[in-house]
Nucleic acid binder design. Sequence first.
DNA 1: AATCGAGCCAACCGCAGCCGG
DNA 2: GCCGGCTGCGGTTGGCTCGAT
Length: 302
Amino acid sequence: MGRTPCCSQVGLRRGPWTPREDSLLVNYIQHYGEGHWRSLPKKAGLLRCGKSCRLRWMNYLRPDIKRGNITPDEDDLIIRLHSLLGNRWSLIAGRLPGRTDNEIKNYWNSHLSKRLKNDTTTTTTTTTTTTTVDKRHTNYHGRNPKGTSKSSEKSTKKPSTEKNNRDGANCEQEVIAKTKIYLPKPIRVGQFSSIKNDGFDAGSNSMPSFLDNVHGQDCTEVLNLDHVFKPGVDQGGNAGGGDPLLCVKDHDFANNIIDRRCESISCHDFSQQKDDMLDKIYEEYQRLLEVEDLLQISDSFC
DNA sequence: AATCGAGCCAACCGCAGCCGG
DNA sequence: GCCGGCTGCGGTTGGCTCGAT
């Protein structure tokens, strides 16, 4: 499709945005709303391409954006969603209110992927989950072996909700113990085509790619999804029991994965399973946020 | 004090989906 | 059904910051 790259136009500014440009963009959007990015810069008096304006607004200027201080809970949620969705940052961001896909992507690349790397190097030398969890305890946030972490140091400069919300390393270790990280290979998906692009078409018996890509494992190992989801569930795998996570952990899902490998169930069924699971993870996250709020309120009385 | 290297993140680039003509 | 423009997405990059030496 012959599309002219909008940013290649002569005379358009590039690089970091100035406060004046920001205010022009914000003022324009406040008056006329988002959209029509192509024509927006001209109307707003900006020497930027529409794409750049959109990016700036979406990733930085939107009023509902939370910046920095990814909490352990968000961290946990990102890991779990990533294990489900792969590099579908926009989908993951959609489940994290106030977070942008760019921020999550950056966070993953700078923090979590390193943790994953450490994790995989340890898992290759060990066979039991217990062992790998123990190893991960020493590698949370991908901190370097010297123990100096710029991210942690930076976070001391910024107001750190992470430190306020949780009891530091213990909680981080707890998160680690709850999660098993996989690294799906990058998948490209359209907004409404996650299943279609997951790599299995009607005539294929293959697994969806996000599962195929799970660490290059076969479906038996994919059953380790149990580790992806929050433990704290009973080992019997009983669904219900008051905890929504019990549903997430529901073995029916894992069984469906196997069924798919062996019998090829319908795309729709699987899509529904995945959507349900996402909803449940998200519900859990919302609950965590509520609990955090309650804890903060109670702390404030102490 | 200067230099180096690692980490972080805003922004850019190119591709693909969607949609209207 | 085809074409072209717009938009959204994910990968990548460049520059800034900061700790280590």
